Amino acid sequence: MSAPDTNLEKQERRHKPSMIALRLVIAFAVLALVGFVALQMLGSGDPIAEELETGSAPSAAVD
């Protein structure tokens, strides 16, 4: 069985806004992932890891 009305041009026009929105969401997700990976590669921001890399003594006293 086939659909009674298969006007592809009409369907393409009706779905165009949805397809544009999906492309924008995918582009944003890719950019966010690239940004996240770049931030992770630039530095961890973890003071313990930085102390281990530099070889300095811990700054907090342990009781």
Score class of each variant (00 low, 15 high):
residue 43 G to T: 10
residue 43 G to W: 10
residue 42 L to Q: 08
residue 37 V to W: 03
residue 50 E to R: 00
residue 15 H to A: 02
residue 8 L to M: 14
residue 4 P to T: 06
residue 3 A to G: 11
residue 41 M to P: 00
residue 6 T to P: 01
residue 23 R to T: 07
residue 52 L to C: 03
residue 58 P to G: 06
residue 1 M to W: 11
residue 14 R to E: 10
residue 43 G to Q: 05
residue 25 V to L: 11
residue 23 R to G: 09
residue 10 K to C: 00
residue 12 E to C: 15
residue 56 S to R: 15
residue 37 V to T: 05
residue 7 N to Q: 05
residue 9 E to Q: 07
residue 11 Q to F: 13
residue 50 E to G: 04
residue 37 V to M: 04
residue 24 L to D: 12
residue 2 S to I: 10
residue 55 G to K: 02
residue 11 Q to I: 11
residue 18 S to E: 15
residue 20 I to Y: 14
residue 47 P to Q: 10
residue 26 I to R: 07
residue 51 E to A: 12
residue 52 L to R: 04
residue 24 L to I: 03
residue 40 Q to I: 08
residue 12 E to Q: 15
residue 3 A to H: 14
residue 24 L to R: 01
residue 4 P to Q: 04
residue 37 V to G: 03
residue 1 M to Y: 14
residue 47 P to S: 05
residue 13 R to Q: 02
residue 35 G to A: 15
residue 34 V to A: 08
residue 38 A to Y: 09
residue 23 R to Q: 12
residue 38 A to C: 08
residue 59 S to E: 07
residue 29 A to K: 01
residue 32 A to C: 15
residue 27 A to T: 05
residue 7 N to K: 04
residue 36 F to K: 02
residue 33 L to A: 14
residue 49 A to R: 12
residue 47 P to E: 01
residue 2 S to F: 11
residue 50 E to T: 07
residue 22 L to Y: 04
residue 60 A to K: 13
residue 36 F to E: 01
residue 54 T to Q: 10
residue 41 M to W: 03
residue 60 A to C: 09
residue 12 E to R: 15
residue 45 G to R: 02
residue 46 D to C: 14
residue 54 T to D: 15
residue 39 L to W: 09
residue 53 E to G: 00
residue 12 E to P: 05
residue 11 Q to S: 10
residue 59 S to F: 03
residue 56 S to F: 07
residue 63 D to Q: 05
residue 20 I to W: 10
residue 10 K to S: 03
residue 8 L to P: 05
residue 23 R to I: 06
residue 50 E to D: 11
residue 55 G to M: 01
residue 45 G to H: 06
residue 57 A to M: 05
residue 26 I to F: 11
residue 52 L to H: 01
residue 42 L to Y: 10
residue 1 M to R: 11
residue 54 T to E: 15
residue 4 P to I: 04
residue 14 R to G: 00
residue 28 F to L: 14
residue 50 E to K: 06
residue 60 A to H: 06
residue 60 A to Y: 04
residue 21 A to E: 11
residue 31 L to M: 15
residue 51 E to Y: 07
residue 61 A to L: 03
residue 26 I to E: 03
residue 14 R to S: 02
residue 7 N to Y: 00
residue 63 D to R: 10
residue 25 V to I: 11
residue 18 S to H: 13
residue 23 R to S: 12
residue 43 G to F: 13
residue 38 A to M: 11
residue 36 F to W: 02
residue 20 I to F: 13
residue 21 A to F: 09
residue 50 E to F: 06
residue 49 A to P: 02
residue 27 A to Y: 06
